[in-house]
Design a protein around this nucleic acid. Structure first.
Length: 591
RNA sequence: CGGAAUGUUGCCUAGUGGCUAAGGCGCCUGCUUUGGGAGCAGGAAAUCGGAGGUUCGAGUCCUCUCAUUCCGACCA
């Protein structure tokens, strides 16, 4: 392609709305255009990168037996009602009516569509296992799009779905994806970590998320350097300290003015935070059956030095939604915000963390402004409805496996794999006949990768102060030919054009900067756009009998004689490909 | 949905209630220039996000509203 013909152009300055590095470079480089919050147009350069990523996806899917299909973006609501998600998901799911007044949804993912397809086509155990996938647009009316392509409302996703007759089959396909995903990310030059995750709205049994570690990420990973344990913080386990057991003392009410936080309280009484009980008031929405849901007031207690893990709590009480309680709601059960405890409250479901339950003589709120109670003991002074782990792991805690100190890091989720099991097939009556003629639900798995998110994470990982440094595998072009016009003759432009034509013949993706711009403009744009190999054709190099070859991101450059340039180009391309290939490896599957 | 910030030309910014809203980048025309964002000359491009209000007078003050961004809630 000719730079002079590209639709779109580079910008010297990024719009002030763009904060994330990838967002800035993608806009400045003329890759993407923001249409509204979380909505982007992909210009030709980005589209080329997407195509290359998608080719890798097709390739790796084919490798594990995936068959490409396409399912619609607009789906009848009926199947979402069958699965229950029509009722479970809030305004993130966009509902609309067609002209006949029929309820429809914009698909945010395609489990229902696939299940509907499977129940109509799969009849016998002989038709399984199967793996189908598509690369399709998804819509989620996310309340908070951010950071360019990292979190958007409309996005393309590679979604695959496995169909099996037994759990061993699911496990096999699951593990195949686990490896396949590492291959995909490695081929794109993105370093990821697979971590155990919550199953969230997808439901199902086991799930892993593929995480790119970066401070701009929204998820927190808890990991152990010593034994390799890692997990999304939402479900991270840790070895809790041993509860301090003392003889139970008499409860005593004391005055604690202006001690609304654990911090204040511990300071005021000059005791460690671990000697206090933290009460957190939440309201859980619980789905009783398909049509009815009830709100339940939850009083959660963790030891004062711990944080509540809302995902653990939500799972423990089987809540569909969990939100902080409002002041009036807290007062209504007889508690006082800032001085709350389970003692004397009515109508709350009390959940206490196992560590807090075992700890003795804690300081807890008196449910009276300005007062706390000393020596509060679970079981004696109040009776919990549930004792379960609801504390959040954090860096500094002990690893559940080896006891070493845990670390934490921010990350972006670029892919995930779920063992759905029969979550959807049972709800939607997606059955097959086994050898004995008996009907059984199909066992499913679902596996997703966000294409745009992957693209932007690659930019986050591969850039410098001047622009993007694309891995050769997904760069919009492999070679960027810069023509520096030479007024004295036509040698430069003839050489550049010949190189461009030779690249085309050799099957090398080349971009030629044939614009009437000054050298500075061209070099800066080349750095910004980030094509891995740059060939500069100008007087200086021609006088030395060649053209200048420079690899983006490397400091040195070389003058390559014109008669061997194509050979050298192919060598460098192979070298860059080999660098990426080095990262491909068989990974060990970790539960 | 809570908290905060910002909306001035395609982009970045200036603009104390007072003259015809200013500059840089980019864009168009011409000349010149070609190894790291060149120079000269000329030009186009803004109903100052929108609505209402205060005022002799509003880009500037007030109210409402919309949009975008950031923090939180949320997030396969």
């Amino acid at each position: 392609m000719r730079f002079s013909q590209i639709f779109g152009h580079t910008l010297k300055e990024a719009p002030s709305d763009a904060q994330a590095v990838s967002h800035q470079f993608l806009i400045r480089g003329g890759y993407i255009h923001q249409v509204a919050a979380g909505l982007f147009s992909y210009l030709p350069l980005a589209r080329r990168v997407m195509n290359k990523i998608e080719n890798i996806l097709h390739d790796e899917m084919a490798d594990i037996g995936g068959q490409e299909i396409t399912m619609p973006v607009v789906l009848p609501a009926e199947m979402w009602k069958e699965s229950g998600r029509w009722y479970q998901i809030g305004s993130e799911l966009t509902r609309l009516k067609d002209r006949k007044d029929r309820d429809m949804v914009l698909a945010m993912t395609h489990e229902e569509a696939l299940c509907d397809l499977a129940r109509k086509y799969i009849r016998s155990y002989k038709e399984m296992p199967r793996l189908v996938y598509h690369i399709q647009t998804k819509w989620r009316d996310d309340p908070r799009p951010r950071a360019g392509l990292i979190r958007v409302r409309e996005f393309k996703m590679k979604d695959s779905y496995s169909l099996d007759t037994d759990w061993e089959g699911l496990d096999k396909q699951y593990r195949a994806h686990y490896q396949s995903y590492f291959n995909i990310f490695n081929r794109c030059g993105l370093d990821v970590l697979a971590v155990k995750s919550d199953t969230g709205m997808m439901g199902g049994k086991i799930a892993h998320e593929f995480m790119y570690l970066t401070p701009i990420g929204e998820d927190t990973i808890i990991y152990c350097d010593d034994c390799g344990y890692n997990s999304n913080r939402q479900v991270a386990d840790f070895k809790k300290p041993r509860a301090v057991k003392e003889d139970l003392l008499e409860t005593e009410k004391i005055e604690t003015p202006d001690c609304k936080t654990i911090d204040d309280l511990a300071d005021f009484l000059d005791i460690p935070e671990s000697k206090t009980a933290k009460a957190v008031f939440m309201v859980a929405t619980i789905q009783e059956d398909k049509e009815t849901e009830v709100e339940k007031f939850i009083l959660a207690i963790v030891r004062g030095d711990m944080d509540l893990n809302e995902t653990k709590l939500a799972n423990a009480v089987k809540a569909k939604e969990l939100r902080p309680a409002q002041e009036e709601e807290i007062k209504a059960i007889g508690a006082v915000p800032g001085y709350g405890s389970p003692i004397g409250v009515k109508g709350a479901f009390i959940v206490i963390d196992d560590l807090a339950a075992e700890s003795t003589n804690l300081v807890a709120g008196a449910n009276e402004a300005g007062y706390h109670l000393l020596n509060v003991n679970c079981g004696r002074d109040f009776t919990p409805d549930l004792i379960v782990d609801i504390a959040a792991a954090q860096s500094g805690h002990d690893c559940i496996n080896c006891g070493s100190e845990l670390q934490s890091e921010k990350a972006v989720e670029v892919g995930n794999i779920f063992k759905l099991g029969t979550r959807y097939s049972e709800a939607m009556n997606c059955m097959y006949q086994d050898e004995n003629g008996k009907l059984n639900p199909i066992i499913m798995g679902s596996y997703g990768i966000g294409v745009g998110r992957l693209l932007s994470c690659v930019v986050e990982q591969h850039h410098d102060d001047y622009g993007i440094i694309w891995p050769i595998s997904i760069a919009p072009f492999q070679v960027h030919i810069i023509l520096l016009h030479d007024k004295k003759g036509t040698e430069a432009s003839e050489t550049a054009e010949k190189l461009y034509a030779d690249c085309k013949t050799a099957g090398i993706d080349a971009l030629i900067d044939d614009r009437k711009e000054s050298p500075g403009v061209k070099f800066n744009d080349a750095d910004l756009v980030g094509i891995p190999i740059r060939l500069t054709v100008g007087r200086r190099a021609l006088d030395q009998g060649g053209v200048e070859l420079k690899v983006r991101g490397r400091a040195e450059s070389e003058i390559v004689p014109i008669d061997i340039i194509m050979r050298r180009l192919k060598e460098i391309i192979e070298e860059l490909k080999a660098e990426l290939a080095e990262k491909l490896e068989i990974v060990e599957y970790k539960e």
